[in-house]
Amino acid sequence: MANTENTERYLALKKYNPWLWLKLKIKKQLGWIGTPKLIPYRGYANENTIYLTGYLTEDKGLEKPTAKQTTWENAVSMLKRYTSDNLPKVDLKASVGSQQIETRTAENGLFKCELPNSGSFSESQNQWKKYLVKFPEEMIATTKNQSTEGEFLVPGTNHEFAVISDIDDTIIVSHSTQWFRKLWLMLFRNSRTRKPFPGVDTFYQALQQGKSGQNENPFFYVSSSEWNLYDLLDDFCTHNQLPKGVLLLRELEASIFQLRKSGGGNHEHKYEKIKHLFEVYPTMNFILIGDNGQRDPEIYERIATEFPNRVKSIYIRTVRKRKHAERDLEIRLKLEQMGVPFVASATSIEAAKHAAKYGIISPGSVQKIEIDAQKDQENPLTKKVFEKE
Rank of each mutant, 00 (worst) to 15 (best):
I331Q: 00
M284P: 00
W227P: 00
P198G: 07
E149L: 11
L110V: 03
A67Y: 11
A373P: 02
K321R: 13
T7F: 01
E272W: 11
Q99D: 15
T70G: 13
K195M: 14
Q100I: 07
F219V: 06
L259A: 14
F135A: 02
R332G: 12
S345M: 05
E8L: 15
Q99Y: 04
E251N: 11
R189V: 04
R194I: 09
H175G: 07
E47R: 12
V222G: 02
Y41W: 13
K375F: 07
Q294C: 01
K323D: 11
W184V: 09
Q100T: 14
H324S: 13
V163Y: 02
Y315Q: 06
L11Q: 10
G34C: 08
D234M: 10
R250S: 12
W128T: 01
K64E: 11
E272P: 01
R317C: 03
D234G: 03
K244D: 07
P198H: 03
A12S: 11
R42H: 10
L187D: 09
P116E: 11
L22C: 10
A254W: 02
I101C: 07
N292F: 05
M139W: 07
E253H: 10
P380A: 01
A346K: 10
R260M: 13
K383V: 08
F161R: 03
F386E: 09
Q69V: 05
L242C: 03
R317P: 03
G199S: 05
S122F: 06
T49G: 01
L87S: 04
S362R: 07
I360T: 06
S124P: 08
R322D: 14
A67L: 12
G364A: 08
Y230P: 03
D235C: 09
I101E: 12
S225E: 07
I331F: 05
W184F: 14
W32L: 15
